[in-house]
Simulated assay, not measured.
Amino acid sequence: MALVLVTGASTGLGLATATTLAADGHDVVLHARNAGRLDDASVLEQMYGVVYGDLSQHDETVQVAQQANAIGAFDAVIHNAGVMRSRDALAVNVVAPFVLTAVMSPPGRAIFLSSGMHLSGSPRRLAPDFSDPARTSYEDSKLFITAFALALARLRPQTRTHVVDPGWVPTRMGGPSAPDDLDEGHATQEWLATADEDAIDPPTGAYWYHRTTRAPHPAAADPGFQDAVVRALEAHTGLELTA
């Protein structure tokens, strides 16, 4: 049995991930922006706990991390929360996972949701976008979070860290005509969070699609670019990612 935090779990893949893990007997802490985001509040009866906060806001993201720390040491954190076509893409998809990682006690495992669309991201657009977040595309944001996750795997080897492309699945974000399987869209992150360590190969630092490793964007795999992303996030947030 694992203690798992799932961010952005009021709807879509996050909700499916949280409820499946809970049904499998794990202690799940559900994160939502606020209580009103839950279409069915009875889902909380299945959860070990709940934390609230708007991940587009720095102070509220810090508070989410503090709420999580008050619950205890997590076996796994699944960074599922994300937005697509929004000026908050940089804040929610990249800055918030960094802030949670910097403020929370390190979990045993960290799983970050990316997207196959990160392959279309540009590694040249990081620095200017903090002053103009609306310029950051979804593709760029997923490139940056992929690079950050792979940096974390290198800088914190005690936390087994992976990146997941869930595919284009029929959620509110993906739309009803999305071609990928919804169950497959959350199965990989559940497996990475809870499987026996010797069942996951490589044990850390991989980019996954449906339990199969794939090559990420070359920039995301470049330690130089990874370090540049970390430095930019540290400067922007005033938080340090301790090794």
Results as ranks from 00 to 15, higher is better:
Val6His: 03
Leu55Pro: 01
Val230Ser: 01
Ser10Pro: 05
Ala219Phe: 08
Arg37Pro: 00
Thr7Gly: 10
Tyr48Cys: 03
Asp181Ala: 00
Ile78Thr: 09
Val50Asn: 09
Leu90Met: 07
Arg172Trp: 00
Thr20Val: 10
Val64Pro: 02
Thr20Tyr: 15
Ser122His: 06
Gly205Cys: 03
Leu100Glu: 05
Gly174Glu: 03
Gln63Leu: 13
His118Asn: 07
Arg87Thr: 13
Thr242Gln: 11
Leu126Trp: 11
Ala76Lys: 10
Phe130Arg: 06
Val99Tyr: 02
Gly108Phe: 12
Gly8Asn: 01
Val169Leu: 11
Leu5Trp: 03
Ser56Leu: 09
Arg160His: 12
Ala243Gly: 02
Thr11Gly: 11
Thr136Val: 07
Thr213Tyr: 02
Arg214Glu: 08
Ala228Val: 08
Val83Trp: 09
Tyr48Phe: 06
Ser10Thr: 11
Met84Thr: 14
Ala195Gln: 13
Thr204Trp: 00
Ser120Cys: 06
Thr7Met: 11
Ala193Asp: 09
Thr11Cys: 13
Ile200Val: 14
Pro223Thr: 08
Asp140Tyr: 02
Arg211Val: 00
Ala220Asp: 02
Leu241Met: 04
Val229Tyr: 12
Thr17Cys: 15
Val4Tyr: 02
Leu30Ile: 14
Ala199Phe: 00
Met173Trp: 01
Arg87Asp: 15
Ala9Met: 01
Ala81Arg: 12
Ala153Trp: 00
Asp183Leu: 02
Ile71Thr: 07
Ala32Gln: 04
Gly53Trp: 05
His118Glu: 08
Leu143Ser: 03
Gly121Thr: 02
Arg214Val: 05
Leu38Phe: 15
Asp183Trp: 06
Ile71Asp: 08
Gly185Leu: 10
Thr136Pro: 02
Val230Met: 01
Leu100Pro: 03
Leu30Thr: 12
Glu197Leu: 14
Arg172Lys: 06
Ala199Pro: 10
Ala219Met: 04
Arg87Ile: 12
Glu197Ser: 13
Thr194Cys: 10
Met173Lys: 02
Pro218Arg: 09
Ala149Ser: 07
Gln67Val: 05
Ser42Phe: 13
Thr161Ser: 11
Asn80Pro: 01
Glu240Arg: 13
Ile111Leu: 10
Ala9Ser: 02
Pro133Lys: 07
Gln57Pro: 00
His210Ile: 12
Gln63Glu: 15
Ala149Tyr: 06
Arg211Asp: 03
Arg125Pro: 01
Phe144Ile: 12
Asp59Arg: 09
Ala65Leu: 05
Ser42Gln: 07
Asp88Pro: 01
Leu233Gln: 08
Asp180Trp: 06
Gly167Ser: 10
Val94Pro: 07
Ala219Ser: 09
Val29Ala: 12
His118Phe: 06
Trp191Arg: 15
Pro106Cys: 01
Gln226Gly: 05
Ala76Asn: 07
Ala2Glu: 13
Gly49Ala: 14
Val164Phe: 09
Met173Thr: 07
Leu100Lys: 04
His210Tyr: 15
Ala65Val: 04
